[in-house]
Design a protein around this nucleic acid. Structure first.
Length: 271
DNA sequence: AATCTTTCCTGCCGGC
DNA sequence: TGCCGGCAGGAAAGAT
């Protein structure tokens, strides 16, 4: 269930272990992810050093000097660091082996993730170029969400999950942020006042940031452990809490469907 | 058997 | 008429 906080936690977890290390070998056991892994990937990577590990939205971007490795974890992907060689388990599709013997291993049972190679300017890559702003960017104008939603009659929950509008808000944190902002998820986006849009933008930022802060405490266990952790769900206010009492007012949490996805909210707190 | 996770893609619609 | 943006629905694989 990687959303922005999980991807950021992964970035912080792997970054120090691969920074400035030389890639000596690339082992690909399964090319069939969301898009095929480029057949020249090993050739492009071997011998290069990783100089930066960045995140844009839910994408990880590894600067390899001669180009960029673009990694998306999809629905079920994870990355972990091995300090020595270890037999691959089921769904361990790709290894980056470093000169010091450590390994960055990509695991993805459902294979909705992606591993791509951009030899030029990664910011011009079609997947990166079209993305909306980062909700955690301190320079994001307070009225960004208000201005960006004026022509959107769609339900606000689906609008904040549109990555062309704003990156990083997936199904779980969309429900969580709307609860924090006390806005009903089915409200038409363009009928939400400026003040409430400001509140929602703030709630999105706080929700993502506190999830990242929580995930940060699991980093100690990053090496030799799974990159995805169930840790975040301890903090859910509404997600997956159907019929359970609202943590604020006690009203049973309701579950509805919006665009084939489940939404959770409190009908008393959110209106 | 239905549901969950992400997001790209196709096709349709209305406005200009 | 053609172009554009908004929007709904479908698709991918596997675990539970």
């Amino acid at each position: 269930m990687p959303e922005l906080p999980e991807v950021e936690t992964t970035r912080k977890g792997i970054g120090p272990h691969i920074q400035n290390k030389q890639i000596s070998q690339v082992n690909i056991r399964h090319f069939g992810l969301r898009w095929p892994i480029p057949s020249n990937l090993a050739e492009a990577l071997e011998g290069r050093h990783v100089t930066q590990t960045l995140r844009r939205g839910k994408y990880l971007l590894l600067d390899c000097g001669n180009g960029w490795l673009i990694i998306h974890l999809g629905m079920s992907g994870s990355l972990r660091i091995l300090t020595q060689t270890e037999p691959p388990r089921k769904h361990d599709h790709v290894d980056l082996v470093f000169a010091d013997g450590s390994i960055l291993r990509y695991h993805d049972p459902r294979r909705f993730g992606a591993i791509l190679w951009e030899p030029g300017n990664v910011w011009n890559h079609p997947l990166i170029r079209e993305m909306g702003p980062e909700p955690l960017d301190p320079l994001l104008p307070a009225d960004y969400l208000y201005d960006a939603t004026r022509k959107r009659s769609q339900a606000i929950k689906q609008v904040i999950m549109d990555s062309k509008l704003l990156v990083g808000v997936g199904n779980i944190y969309a429900s969580e942020a709307l609860f924090r902002a006390r806005i009903h998820p089915a409200t038409a986006a363009n009928r939400i006042s400026k003040q409430r849009c400001q509140r929602l933008q703030q709630a999105i930022r706080q929700t993502l940031q506190s999830a990242i802060d929580t995930g940060g405490s699991t980093l100690r266990d990053y090496v030799n452990s799974r990159g995805d952790s169930g840790y975040f769900q301890l903090q859910h206010l509404v997600y997956d809490r159907t019929e359970q009492p609202c943590r604020v007012c006690g009203t049973p949490i309701r579950q509805i469907r919006q665009g084939q996805r489940s939404t959770f909210f409190c009908s008393h707190c959110q209106n």
